[in-house]
């Protein structure tokens, strides 16, 4: 009797655990089923490799997402160029320079940064970063790829800092002690021993930060200007994949090719972030294994 009840409870919890697998699979399948009808009207190669996105054109609509993919990658890479050095530097400061007391105060500051809603960051892109860029470049508007990069850097900083700090913290003490015993000073130990030893953890952190940046919607929607053309420089407005979905899903009639094509963009985003997560997962897993030995 008791055992039966135990087994029932256990299987209920098991089903609950299985729910997350079903959810992930469900997201993928629903995206796929809603995306597939796109390719009845649009050739897959055109969808991926054409830069012209104009679904509501009067005569011949076109569904090429290349310019959006390039825009997304542009703001993402731009944000990494800012956030990675800054993030690793901050992580190294927290793990190697700051006194325990300073660390107690500084770590929550990074966490607070992570708590700011993306729509607020986007708002600041409009009212603060945009005018600054406009003034510096002499352009009429500061809503462009550079603005998006700066904001996304702010958004992905907390991820990069806290994961890089974890990676630096899990470098075995014996490594540092060996370096110090051989006459290296703390700086040399950090640069030549700890950071190389933690490099795969830092790489994983960077990839997770990149995943965040690729999928971020509100900040880029508000701050990058949203011109659906192939971007030529960081000072031009761009329109990312996420922004396209956010702009067009509200106006599009349901179950048209245009509607389905937005799900196809969602599917591309899903696959991008899925691969990034998976790879960083594998890197982290290997890294933890090695550090344990």
């Amino acid at each position: 009797m008791h055992r039966q009840k135990e087994n029932i409870i256990k299987s209920l919890f098991f089903l609950n655990g299985l729910l997350v697998v079903i959810a992930l699979l469900g997201i993928f399948l629903l995206l796929l089923f809603n995306a597939l009808p796109t390719f009845k009207d649009v050739k897959f190669s055109e969808f991926i490799f054409r830069a012209n996105w104009n679904p509501s054109a009067y005569l011949e609509s076109s569904y090429g997402i290349l310019s959006q993919v390039v825009s997304t990658l542009m703001v993402t890479i731009g944000s990494l160029i800012i956030a990675v050095p800054l993030g690793i530097g901050t992580a190294a400061y927290l793990s190697d320079v700051a006194s325990p007391r300073v660390r107690e105060i500084a770590k929550p500051i990074v966490e607070i940064l992570a708590g700011i809603p993306s729509v607020v960051i986007g708002f600041l892109g409009i009212v603060l970063v945009g005018p600054l860029i406009a003034k510096a470049t002499g352009n009429y508007s500061g809503l462009n790829a550079l603005n998006g990069s700066v904001l996304l850097a702010v958004m992905s900083l907390p991820t990069i800092v806290s994961l890089s700090e974890d990676a630096l913290g899990s470098v075995p003490k014996s490594y540092t002690e060996a370096s110090l015993a051989l006459g290296g000073n703390p700086w040399q130990t950090l640069i030549r021993v700890k950071i190389p030893a933690a490099s795969s953890g830092i790489l994983a952190a960077t990839m997770l930060g990149m995943g965040r940046a690729i999928g971020e919607t509100m900040t880029v929607l508000m701050a990058t200007g949203n011109a659906p053309a192939m971007p030529k420089s960081f000072l031009e407005p761009v329109r990312t994949m996420t922004a396209t979905i956010a702009i067009e899903l509200g106006e599009v009639p349901y179950y048209t090719t245009h509607f389905h094509s937005l799900f196809a963009i969602g599917l591309v985003l899903f696959i991008f972030t899925f691969i990034l997560n998976l790879v960083s997962d594998i890197i982290l897993h290997r890294y933890e294994k090695r550090m344990r030995v």
Binding site: V20, L31, N34, I245, L262, T273
Partner: peptide, 30 residues
């Protein structure tokens, strides 16, 4: 179990706008 853990990590990496699409497809429509 490892599959469950992997799914959790991947779910937390799914972009918020994709959750929006999923919500439209499943809750609003289906």
């Amino acid at each position: 179990t490892r599959l469950i853990r992997m799914s959790i990590r991947n779910l937390s990496g799914v972009p918020s706008i994709v959750y929006g699409l999923f919500g439209v497809a499943l809750f609003v429509e289906l």
